Computed example of a mutant assay.
Amino acid sequence: MSKFSKLGLRRVAGAVAIASVAALGLAGMGAGDAAAAKLPNGYKKATGIDGEVVQTWRTNESAYAIGTVANNPTARGFVLSGTYTTKASAGVAGNIAVKYIVGCQVDISGVELGLSGALDFVAATANISGSVSFPLAPGQVAIVDVTDKDFDGKPMSLQLSQLSFKLNGCGGYASARSAVKVIAAKGYNTDDGTVNGEGTLIQSTLYGKPFSIN
């Protein structure tokens, strides 16, 4: 079985890696839960050339838009919740990462990770306990890294609860969608900043349904 070593396939974002907890209990909005719009569940199966299998699920995802205290039309946001799970075949390990694609006056229904010209944004640890705030001008798309975690031999779930995002500078239509990215392989490791393993390197991204932030 062949071995491989790939540089740069995993973006190391230590500020958002949650090493010991898979559940994030974040900004509670009280009665706002009743207004949350339930989004469709999702599932994706990826298979390697040597028969390795990686499955990804998106369940109980919901979101609702929020305004600002000053009712500023160029500042708004949304609150989201959801559970994101991956399971790999025996001997396969990897990493699961939850990201959000946010666009201002841009149709993001076909936008994928790695879009040229996208505005990448990594949430800071201090913001994860409450809300993520970032500028987003008309015509821009932001790829927001929320959290990620390595897994090895067992199913792994990341749960978001009442995580709030705040956009500044976005006038007009805005929307967002989730993206769950999984990379996996037999013997997976990230020594020396590279992704190493044996056989097939499996990369799979499960996209959520876009929703409005207006």
Rank of each mutant, 00 (worst) to 15 (best):
M156T: 11
A185Y: 05
A176I: 03
I143D: 12
D191Q: 07
S131Q: 14
A142Y: 07
N189H: 10
S131C: 07
K154A: 12
T190F: 01
D120A: 12
K149N: 05
Q203M: 10
S178M: 11
A124L: 10
A176P: 02
G139M: 03
M156C: 02
Y207P: 06
V182Y: 10
T194P: 06
S131F: 12
T205V: 13
G171A: 07
A137E: 10
Q159F: 08
L136C: 13
L115C: 08
V141Y: 03
D192N: 14
Y188M: 08
G117I: 10
N189F: 04
G153A: 02
L167V: 09
A118K: 12
A142S: 15
S164N: 05
L136K: 08
S204W: 01
G114P: 15
L115H: 15
A185C: 03
N168E: 12
N127T: 15
K166M: 12
G208M: 05
G153T: 08
Q162C: 04
V144Q: 03
L201N: 06
L119M: 15
A137C: 00
T194Y: 08
L167G: 10
P138D: 09
T125D: 13
G117L: 03
Y188D: 00
F134W: 09
L167Q: 01
V182C: 10
L167R: 04
Q140R: 01
P155C: 05
V182H: 07
V195H: 08
N189G: 09
F151Y: 05
G139I: 10
R177N: 07
G193P: 10
S131E: 14
K209C: 12
G153S: 03
A176E: 04
L206R: 00
G208H: 05
S157Q: 05
T125Q: 13
P138Y: 03
